[in-house]
């Protein structure tokens, strides 16, 4: 039995890789790829008549395999299926770090899942509040209700858009410049930031189109996403490289954080670093840069 440490609501989640929970060949060594989180899937990747089998496989994987620092999230079946309650029981009993709610459309959906999670935590003697939640927004209604979804529970750490279903609802398809989902991505980001949780972009499914993948990543980074859902290990490295801060950004962030600590200890609130005005508003951003730098091996993380 592998006791997993208590999940952290806010941690680095640049890459979240999907894996079919029913396939032992995939899930047995998923930690070697070095993604920040793995997403064991009980939903679309698992055929309707194998949902039961996938849960047994998932339970023993969670209990036996040491995923180390890799976060383990499970995507459960939608609330309109007969599967989601047992999905939640197995996730909680197995000690998954978090649950991804598929096709989430309202705060009520989050609360419904939260109630079942709480019940399962009591049933299996798991610490109350341990199991985190995130929601996947897959429909126009989900996007429009993004803020109420993001702020529906203290367990919520993030929200993700799911491109396939969303584009279908919108009667559009993938566009290289991202215009098909620009409004939805933007709206979801604003909602997530307003609620103080993380925000993740959808998968990029054309594995042979490296150029298109990079273009989408750059747009993701520019828009302010925390990370991206992935379907193949080869997509991990480009994301980590692109989401890494530049050398210049790291040096700047270190100066800002060090100066802030010094100045605030001396009772000064606003000051300058290299001629630029700095106050407390700059600190969370600088600390985030340093955390990223530490995760990327660019900095010893002495200041964070």
């Amino acid at each position: 039995m592998i006791p997993r440490p208590r999940p952290q609501r806010f941690r680095l989640r640049r890459t979240m890789m999907f894996m079919n929970a029913q396939k032992p060949g995939l899930i047995k060594d998923a930690y070697i790829y070095g993604c920040d989180s793995i997403m064991l899937d009980l939903e679309d990747a698992v055929a309707e008549n194998q949902k039961d089998s996938a849960r047994f496989s998932l339970y023993h994987a969670l209990k036996t395999i040491d995923y180390g620092d890799t976060e383990v999230i499970v995507r459960i079946n939608g609330l309109d299926t007969p599967h989601w309650q047992e999905d939640i029981r197995v996730c909680v009993a197995g000690g998954a770090d978090g649950i991804r709610i598929a096709k989430c459309e309202s705060a009520q959906d989050v609360k419904t899942v939260e109630a079942a999670v709480l019940e399962a935590e009591k049933e299996f003697g798991v610490e109350i509040g341990r199991t985190l939640l995130m929601a996947a927004l897959e429909s126009p209604k989900g996007i429009l209700n993004a803020y109420e979804i993001c702020s529906a529970s203290d367990r919520m750490f993030g929200v993700a858009i799911s491109g396939g279903d969303f584009r279908r609802c919108m009667q559009t398809k993938f566009q290289p410049d991202g215009v098909d989902m620009l409004a939805a991505r933007g709206h979801m980001l604003v909602a997530a930031r307003a609620a103080g949780i993380q925000c993740f972009d959808t998968v990029f499914t054309d594995l042979d189109n490296d150029e298109g993948f990079m273009a989408e990543l750059m747009q993701n980074k520019a828009m302010g996403f925390d990370g991206k859902s992935l379907i193949n290990p080869k997509q991990i490295r480009p994301v980590h490289e692109l989401f890494a801060p530049t050398e210049k950004e790291v040096i700047w962030a270190k100066k800002v954080v060090a100066a802030y600590r010094e100045q605030s200890a001396a009772g000064v609130g606003v000051f300058t670093v290299d001629g630029k005005m700095i106050d407390i508003a700059f600190i969370p951003g600088a600390e985030r840069t340093l955390k990223l730098a530490k995760a990327c091996g660019m900095d010893d993380g002495g200041l964070v």
Binding site: K28, D52, F56, S57, Y59, A61, T64
Partner: peptide, 19 residues
């Protein structure tokens, strides 16, 4: 862990209790 999962699932299925 996979062997266990498959044996358990087969047994529960044989009793219609796997769901």
């Amino acid at each position: 862990c996979t062997i266990k999962a498959r044996v358990e699932c087969a047994v529960f299925r044989s009793c219609d209790k796997a769901d």
